[in-house]
Design a protein around this nucleic acid. Structure first.
Lengths: 363, 363
DNA sequence: CTGAAAGCGCTTACAG
DNA sequence: CTGAAAGCGCTTACAG
């Protein structure tokens, strides 16, 4: 394939005035056929539409927002599009926004707090009707700044603990509890939990759930620390497990993330421990990047799309009701996905997902 | 954590007029301190900035675009954010856009052509300065429509074969060639290529590359068709391979995607064939969802970020040079990532990526 | 049912 | 160095 002709010089887009001229009507009439077609006589409407088509007119939404004083777009700022949970959130939000006649715009802050601020400022400058923010760390400053200026913000996947904006959370304690219950139900009595420090909310909450389940069952829990929460943390943790004498070794391991779980499975295999024969393993997060590991990984699925849908709902309510709106926190429930790494090969992957509980509301 | 207070009623954002009043200057002066600070006396500038801070003023970018007749944002419409290649593209485009003082907005069409059109129309309505489009199928209609109205479009990852817009492509034939050369270099003489029909450009081009390498080497190629290009295609293809008598079985398999390769590895293992001992396997795409499979998968990496960077470069040139701009096609080169599924366990994963060739230009 | 006119929040020559 | 005024492309009462 070869080269190209030069670009047609940037043609100026037709305006409503051009359409009006071509249709032989006034500017206001064109606006009416766009906004209140029922107020316009059929034949006029047709002439205007003909002119619109002929000219390839596309209304300037910036001018429209400015004049109408309303903006039908929502900005979604995400920490990390590399994590499939956030892609799911975006998909859910997208669908719900469309269903409500709004447009969703995405911005990826790529784990960079400064970039996150840039995006927040951008959306505010664009006068979106509201912002959905999935932050990595405490978004206090950013949220404060934006809210103080009057733009509604819904925080996703981070519990800021403050009641001054809506929040959508996953019940991470329940995730940990589900995971441990699963292992206990399989008959395991000595569990291990591989995780980082409680610096990150999800780690802290999942740990709580695991501990509660183990304590309630009168079983035993070994906690194995790791700095690296992705696959790279696998070798270290696997080495520690493999080094234990067989009679003291846990018979089930819960990794705080799927990537970590995947790394574990791989390294345990190399150390000569069969999964799940010698030791059952599961992750948490249902991260698609950990799909199809050596042994398909049992996990706890976070309902990303549900989060996106709920968030748009809360935001739209706040925009519509203004002062009448009351902030609330929606807590969405995770669900267990049983696969081979805990239940064995005969277990059909992906089929046994338990259906999630109803989201709880509070607030 | 409990409930919330009601939202502060949607406060109206301060305008430049408010800033001017507070600073005791005219509207035009405020605009000058924002756009041409050097033209304003230091003390005045300070007063204006004080007013801006006090009021929490954020300039309305819609009004600015309207008045200035320029818009510093670029829209990126992606087929599928679930595929990590596109996330990489977005990251590269983001960085390059920022470096050039523009803002990148993302929209995910989620494999839905209608949604893709919606996004194109939205960006056109928003009067972005240009659009980057990574389509799934031939984007002819959409691109024509948008370009006819004067918005520059750069097409990513799809060869439309027409010289009337800029394009950034990955050299998929080279990807296939690299893959086959790798297997041949390892000493394999009977290769299999598992892929769908040539309906999709990448499949067609990768197949060409594989065939060329095999033919040039005087080796043998078995082509195994599959409908499903993701992990689900693994079992069928693995069954066909396993069913062959050992002396006719290929000693190396190239899957057209990583997900397919991952599915293959898993199923071959279940069928009792060791990877790479009995049969070497590799994928193509370097999809992070296929990370850390049973056996880390050798693959061909597509330089997503490079694509994003190149695309923004072409677009900005077209916007800046207008009629002077000449459309061109940039072809970016893939690179081999050798891992255990072809090279064996002793091979250190992720270390042996060959560095990619320089991108070629044409046009 | 249609049109004339003010106004949304900004930028930008043009005067002073 | 600063201000007054026109204009960007639209919407929306308000008249007719």
């Amino acid at each position: 394939m070869s080269s190209g002709g030069s670009a047609r010089s940037g043609r100026v887009k037709p305006s409503m005035t051009d359409v009006a001229a071509r249709a032989g009507v006034s500017l206001g009439t064109v606006s009416h056929v766009l906004n209140h077609p029922e107020r316009v006589k059929e034949s006029t409407r047709r002439r205007v539409h003909a002119a619109i088509d002929a000219l390839g007119f596309v209304r300037n939404s910036q001018a429209r927002s400015l004049a109408a004083g309303e903006n039908r777009t929502i900005g979604l700022v995400l920490v990390d599009l590399g994590n499939t949970l956030f892609v799911d959130i975006a998909r859910g939000a997208q669908q719900e926004a469309t269903a409500r006649g709004m447009t969703l715009l995405l911005a990826n802050s790529d784990n960079d707090d400064d970039l996150q601020d840039v995006h927040l400022d951008f959306f505010e400058g664009a006068r979106v009707s509201g912002i959905l923010l999935a932050p990595m760390t405490d978004p206090r400053t950013g949220v404060d700044r934006v809210r103080r200026r009057g733009t509604p913000v819904v925080v996703l996947n981070y519990d800021s603990g403050r009641p001054d904006c809506c929040t959508v959370l996953v019940d991470n304690e329940q995730a940990g509890h589900l995971a441990a219950r699963h292992m206990l139900d399989l008959g395991h009595r000595r569990l291990a939990f591989v995780a980082g420090r409680d610096h990150l909310q999800p780690v802290r909450d999942r740990r709580r759930g695991v501990r509660r389940a183990v304590t309630d069952a009168g079983a035993e829990l070994v906690e194995i620390p790791t700095e690296d929460l992705s696959a790279g943390g696998g070798p270290g943790a696997a080495a520690r497990l493999a080094a234990l004498p067989a009679h003291r070794r846990p018979d089930a391991v819960i990794a705080v993330t799927d990537l970590l779980g995947m790394g574990l499975v791989q390294e345990l295999g190399r150390a000569g421990l069969a999964v799940p024969g010698d030791i059952a393993v599961m992750g948490c997060d249902y991260d698609k990047r950990a799909w199809g590991g050596a042994v398909p990984l049992t996990s706890v699925r976070m309902p990303g799309e549900e989060i996106g849908v709920a968030a748009v709902g809360l935001l739209v309510d706040e925009v519509a009701r203004g002062g009448e709106h009351r902030h609330e926190t929606v807590v969405v429930q995770p669900s267990l996905v049983v696969r081979e790494s805990s239940a064995g090969r005969e277990h059909d992957p992906l089929v046994a997902a338990r259906s999630p509980a109803e989201p709880r509301r509070r607030g």
